[in-house]
């Protein structure tokens, strides 16, 4: 149920993002979702890919610093208010978000929201209690 996200350390310098993505492209690894957090001198590239283990091996071989982190994906209606209703649930249950990013699922016209919090198990439990659909990791890898 938890999705393996890959985080990559990047210097905030021309060409570094390209180098990371190019490394993945050369390894024929398709990126499902991507988000970047940045500061003036470095950034963290977070990606979801089809074959995380292969991607990690490839990136590390090319001297990137890589860490994996488990995150949760949920399915939302791609309509106004979809996201805020979920955030309200988190808020009501005192769950603090570390970060989120979202993308749309072309086929089902649904939005997929990826979430990171300090207590993932509590998040899963809360989401289930509120009948929110948690997307299986396989489905996210194979979008």
């Amino acid at each position: 149920m938890k999705i393996k996200q890959i985080s990559i350390f990047l210097e905030n310098k021309k060409g570094r993002l390209w180098k990371a993505l190019d490394t993945l492209a050369k390894g024929k690894i398709n990126i499902r979702a991507l988000s970047i957090a940045d500061t003036s001198d470095f950034g963290i590239l977070r990606i979801i890919v089809q074959s995380p283990d292969k991607a990690i091996e490839l990136l590390e071989k090319n001297n990137f610093i890589v860490k994996t982190k488990k995150i949760i994906g949920i399915e939302l209606d791609d309509t106004p208010g979809g996201l805020s209703s979920v955030l309200k649930i988190l808020n009501d249950n005192d769950i603090n978000l570390e970060y989120i990013y979202a993308f749309t699922h072309e086929k089902s016209e649904k939005a997929i929201l990826l979430l990171q919090v300090d207590n993932l198990d509590l998040l899963i439990k809360t989401l289930k209690e509120n009948n929110i659909i948690i997307v299986p990791s396989k489905e996210v890898y194979n979008l």
Partner: peptide, 11 residues
């Protein structure tokens, strides 16, 4: 130089 031990997923 950063290393695996010095890298965290959060800013």
């Amino acid at each position: 130089e950063a290393s695996k031990e010095l890298f965290f997923d959060e800013i």
